[in-house]
């Protein structure tokens, strides 16, 4: 379970990491994408048979060696993913190790830190990636987990973008789904 948690977070954040700088020309998603610095995101979680989705907003900061996924609304939650492990702090509280050894092992063992830095080619080792017809001029990819453990959680992910990832829809194995949309990247502080 912890492994799946770590994997899902890592992958989502990895795709965010594929965001490129503002450039009107679309970049081949399998080329090494430039690593962005900070960008705002909106995360909307849809549950089956529930009318009201759960919406969260925040800022993601991506570097070569770590990712900071900071939810600012409706509650302050900072998740940091690094090779040393995953930590989470709530309401500016002290960071707590997340997932103990299992989740961290899964995260680092899955090569997701490569994905987080925008390396889709490396992601092929863990995910089967197919190219779907473009939508509105954006490239459109579908990622299907190769491993059984991840597949128990995620059925597939659809990613759209041009110079980087602009949106992501995660279809969970249980039928629920999640949309993540990214604003234009801002300059790093």
């Amino acid at each position: 379970m912890k492994g799946a948690l770590g994997l899902a977070l890592g992958f989502f954040l990895g795709l965010m990491g594929a965001m490129a700088s503002a450039d009107a020309k679309c970049i081949d998603p399998f080329a090494t994408l430039p690593v962005p610095a900070r960008t705002a995101f909106t995360q909307t979680r849809h549950f089956q048979n529930v009318a009201k989705p759960l919406v969260a907003e925040g800022v993601v900061e991506i570097a070569a060696a770590h990712v900071r996924w900071h939810v600012t609304k409706p509650v302050d939650i900072l998740t940091v993913i690094a090779p040393e492990g995953v930590t989470q702090s709530v309401d500016h509280g002290p960071p707590q190790a997340l997932g103990a050894s299992g989740g961290d092992a899964f995260l680092s063992g899955s090569g997701l830190l490569h994905v987080l830095s925008g390396n889709f080619s490396a992601a092929r080792a863990q995910y089967k990636i197919t190219t779907l017809p473009p939508i509105g001029g954006n490239w459109h990819l579908r990622l299907v987990p190769r491993g059984e453990q991840v597949a128990r959680l995620i059925r597939h992910m659809d990613v759209q973008g041009c110079i980087g990832v602009a949106s992501l829809q995660v279809q969970q194995a249980d039928g629920d789904w999640m949309d993540i949309r990214l604003a234009l990247p801002a300059k790093s502080k």
Binding site: V75, L153, D174, D176
Partner: peptide
């Protein structure tokens, strides 16, 4: 709340109906 809004928790509507504070996930941690 951290589990609920962080994009990593394997949360479903059924789970939330019977385990709204995600005790199952918290205990696993």
């Amino acid at each position: 709340l951290a589990l609920l809004f962080a994009p990593i928790a394997p949360v479903s509507a059924d789970l939330l109906r019977h385990d709204p504070f995600l005790r199952t996930l918290a205990l696993g941690q």
